[in-house]
């Protein structure tokens, strides 16, 4: 079995990559994928600890999180498609009308 430390460090790295992507990148599609990456990292930690303790709760939560992630991805993609149709770009810098 893979030691828990490895999984946690791996998940931490994934999370940092995702967070860095959200801050640095400008393409809305990549932002969405980075958010997914962060959520996947936290899900991974849930599953890893659930296996460590041999209890199903963490995995149940992980499945729940996956379902929420799928729904979120669907909505996010829908917003992106609508955004792209309006502006022919996915650059988030172009989305500056959230104020109104």
């Amino acid at each position: 079995m893979i030691p828990i430390e490895h999984v946690v460090v791996f998940a931490g790295l994934l999370f940092v990559i995702g967070a860095a992507g959200v801050i640095i990148r400008r393409n809305a599609l990549i932002l969405l994928m980075c958010v997914q990456l962060m959520m996947a990292a936290s899900t991974l930690v849930l599953v890893a600890f659930a296996r460590l303790h041999g209890e199903p709760h963490g995995q149940v939560l992980a499945v729940l999180a996956i379902v929420v992630m799928a729904a979120q991805a669907a909505i996010g993609l829908g917003v992106l498609v609508a955004f792209f149709r309006g502006r022919e770009t996915l650059d988030v810098e172009e989305a500056r009308e959230l104020k109104w």
Binding site: I23, L31, V92, R96, L98
Partner: peptide, 18 residues
């Protein structure tokens, strides 16, 4: 502070959750 830019909001959201 609220310029209405999606990118800025994303950054603030990440920093805030951190």
């Amino acid at each position: 502070a609220h310029a209405g830019r999606a990118g800025d909001s994303a950054i603030w959201m990440v920093l805030g959750s951190l």
